[in-house]
Nucleic acid binder design. Structure first.
Length: 116
DNA sequence: ACCATGACTCCAT
DNA sequence: CATGGAGCCATGG
């Protein structure tokens, strides 16, 4: 019988999250749900956030480019807090209104993105 | 294996 | 758009 890819190892889930997050172009942001979808689980947004939380690797994983569905920054940012995330984003050209990003302009269009 | 936690999201009010 | 409740996924004790 055919063995489909539906049985993806969960532990690799984190790896997938990191892989996707690292592909986010500079000056753009992505939502947890978006990442989750690209990872194969459109409703694993929570797991995505958790993945980033347990993997504080600033410089390797641009977690500051991840925002919630409203474009709001994480309230419990792993390093430095929202202020840090906001600064990093504005530094890349992403305008942040106190704690919110305009997804209409800065949302990463991953429609054409394919995770290998 | 079960319970509790968490950087989320959707739906109803 | 604000608030509250329920759902979903993965992890750790």
């Amino acid at each position: 019988m055919n063995y489909e890819v539906s049985t993806l190892p969960k532990k690799n889930f984190y790896e997938k999250v990191y892989a996707v997050v690292m592909q986010i172009p500079e000056g753009k942001v992505a939502t947890y749900g978006q990442i989750a979808m690209l990872c194969g689980s459109p409703k694993a947004a929570r797991a995505v956030g958790y993945a980033l939380h347990v993997n504080p690797s600033p410089g390797i994983i641009p977690c500051h480019r991840i925002v919630n569905r409203e474009g709001g920054l994480a309230k419990s940012f792993a390093f430095g807090g929202i202020d840090r995330q906001k600064e990093l984003l504005e530094k890349e050209g992403v305008k942040v209104d106190i704690d919110t990003v305009d997804l209409k302009v800065f949302l990463w269009d991953s429609s054409n993105f394919i995770l290998e």
